[in-house]
Write a protein that binds this DNA or RNA. Structure first.
Lengths: 118, 118
DNA sequence: CGGGATCCCTCATGATACTG
DNA sequence: CAGTATCATGAGGGATCCCG
């Protein structure tokens, strides 16, 4: 019997831990769709994220080497974010998931309504 | 500028909402790896999930039509779970993510240690 | 054995205010 | 503009008890 214990190096746990949060994937696909973006731009694009969570999310992605952060020493501070190569390499997999979601959503919605559970 | 607002039908939000929780993907790949499983078996395979969360997770997956639940009217109750066709169709995408995680984990770990963030 | 119901607690997230 | 710091919250999840 195959299992996926949390013990040590389970990649599933690891990837879910990092990408399964509320915002990471959203930030990644946003950056992928728009290229280099400033903090404010990302914030405007993902309107319902708080400033704090955007900062935290970007920092985590930067720590994992998925996003690069470039600070310009200007008077109105400017910081630009973009996907790293590693970040870009993840995009197809996320899009695979998104495509699946798009295809299955109607059936899933129907399934949900049938069982009566919200 | 492309964005992904939460407004109505954003599949990203939807799929993350359902699969980005702590256990769903784990249950899915466990069922995929082992085929039909009893409640107890799943619980033993994913040792650190609470009975409650396993129940909740399975119910949600069942509601979305990703997992089927078969109850046998026997004296020691027996309930068997297995992936539906829709559930199986999701597996490749999850595995894509897992494979990516496996490949990138060393680099990510290195990246994390460099920035000094845990 | 499978799981429903309940209580409780922690952590992730949000809101606000302040700084360089 | 791009954050940091602080405080408040509520939903997710764990532990326990009970039932068919």
């Amino acid at each position: 019997m195959k299992n996926f214990h949390p013990d040590n190096n389970c990649p599933v746990r690891n990837v879910l831990c990092r990408l399964g949060d509320k915002w990471s994937m959203l930030v990644l696909i946003t950056l992928n769709a728009n290229g280099t973006m400033r903090f404010c731009d990302i914030h405007k694009t993902i309107a319902d994220i708080s400033q704090r969570m955007l900062t935290v999310t970007l920092r985590t992605l930067e720590t994992d080497g998925l996003v690069s952060r470039k600070v310009y020493a200007e008077v109105p501070p400017r910081v630009e974010y973009e996907l790293t190569e590693r970040g870009k390499s993840l995009i197809p997999h996320i899009e695979g998931l998104v495509d699946w979601a798009l295809q299955q959503m109607p059936g899933i919605m129907e399934s949900r309504s049938q069982t009566g559970t919200a």
